[in-house]
Design a binder for these strands. Sequence first.
DNA 1: TATATTTGCAACTAATTGGTTTCTTAATTT
DNA 2: AAATTAAGAAACCAATTAGTTGCAAATATA
Lengths: 112, 112
Amino acid sequence: MRRDIFQAIADPTRRAIMGLIAVQAMTPNAIAEHFNTSRQAISKHLRILSECELLQQEQKGREIYYQLEINKMKEIDQWLAQFKAIWENRFNELDNILATLKNKTDENESTI
Amino acid sequence: MRRDIFQAIADPTRRAIMGLIAVQAMTPNAIAEHFNTSRQAISKHLRILSECELLQQEQKGREIYYQLEINKMKEIDQWLAQFKAIWENRFNELDNILATLKNKTDENESTI
DNA sequence: TATATTTGCAACTAATTGGTTTCTTAATTT
DNA sequence: AAATTAAGAAACCAATTAGTTGCAAATATA
């Protein structure tokens, strides 16, 4: 049952939960009200997110407020960086091609 | 069998495949040599990636060269943007607090 | 033409997943 | 003190998943 953050975000309900508690901490019951599934199902999702260290929790009486541990999300960004490097590089290459084409056009224009 | 890009990247083998063919196109056999699993298993992963529109393929004789469709990866970046906005915002807030603290210190120093 | 190679597809299996129901614990309210 | 509320845990179920084995189609080579 080794879980990682990529498995955590694979489920659409979990992604929705993450969006919900990204800014504001919420209790499991409050979260469950936003979905069609049972509180227990949400509770299991919260446990999975928790195992991935994606949650902060604060107990207040018998309520537990969960909030997204936003710093953990940087791990996805870091993984994505290798691909971002490629698409930005290709964009720059395209940029160079366009610039070269433009220069050639300018040269042609100057000979008119 | 509705697949999305988040499910595609949930599997560690698939993420490894993606890293492998991000820069250079490769055949299924060549990809499979990098892993402990069978060629058929890799083939299934490629099919899943394909269904998520994460692959470009080019047939050359009886070989098929697969390459990552890097533009599709931007979808993850777009989803991540909402969280990035939060962590950058919090960083700026921290920045402001530090700046305020520094100003106060400067004021105190000027009264010495 | 016969054989070998590359690949995809279908059927099957074991493990995992997301969900439900039921139960327990702990904290509040009446 | 009794009833209610919030939440986690365990047992179970249907669906999905990642993998295997076996096979068929297409291309290349002898």
